[in-house]
Simulated scan of single mutants.
Amino acid sequence: MVIAVGVLAATGVTLLLERSLTRILLGVILLGNGVNLLILVGGRSGGAPVVGAGPDDAMSDALPQAMVLTAIVITFGLTAFLAAVAYRSWYLGGDDEVQDDVEDQQIVALAARNEVPNADLGGEGPGDDPEQVDPEPPRRQVDPEPPRRPGGTR
């Protein structure tokens, strides 16, 4: 059982490091199943955990079973979310591969030149920050006084 946990966890982590959202989704599923199996292996096996069904020392531990049921629900929710993101990415772009963003490309260029990036100390205004990719849109001016209708009513 421990070898199965190791294989599921290693395969899940390997798939999580891929760029395709479908492979990431499969990695989350495999890693979730590996963790669930690990939790179950850690519990004590035995009879049904029902009071009066047998001696207390012969009952199985109910806590790992409850934790696995909770983890199954959480993994299912995360799987549904990632499936929706992968489908949306495929629908809009034709594939589900995660693209590099601007900062990733800058880091790759600095690594190729063997340079250290400048520290971002902050404190710049929105117009002075060279890292600002998408500045805020200009705000709409609000009239201080609403227009009056003829006859003196508002």
Results as ranks from 00 to 15, higher is better:
V28F: 15
D100C: 04
G12C: 02
G42Y: 05
N118F: 09
V50D: 03
D61I: 01
A119W: 14
V98H: 01
A4S: 15
A109N: 11
P137S: 03
L17T: 10
R148W: 11
M67V: 11
G122T: 04
L16S: 03
S89H: 14
F76E: 06
D56G: 06
A119V: 14
A111I: 08
R139N: 07
G12L: 02
G6Q: 04
Y87W: 14
A111G: 10
G122Y: 11
T11D: 00
G151A: 06
A119N: 12
V51S: 10
V73G: 12
I24F: 02
T79E: 04
E18G: 03
L16W: 00
V102C: 03
L25Q: 03
R23G: 01
P138Y: 01
I24H: 04
D104S: 14
V35R: 02
P55V: 03
Q105W: 08
D143E: 15
M1L: 08
R19M: 05
I39E: 00
Q65E: 07
G152S: 11
G94V: 01
P150E: 12
D57S: 09
E145Q: 12
L26R: 02
L31E: 00
L92E: 12
P49C: 01
V68K: 04
D101W: 11
S89V: 08
A62V: 08
D61L: 01
N118I: 08
I39V: 15
D120A: 08
A109R: 13
R140L: 11
G12T: 00
P144V: 10
L69I: 09
Y87K: 11
G77K: 09
T22G: 14
Q132Y: 02
G94A: 03
V35I: 15
P146Y: 02
I72Q: 06
R154M: 10
D128Q: 07
L121S: 09
V142C: 05
D95M: 04
G77V: 12
G152D: 09
E97S: 03
A80M: 13
D104P: 02
E145Y: 13
P137T: 03
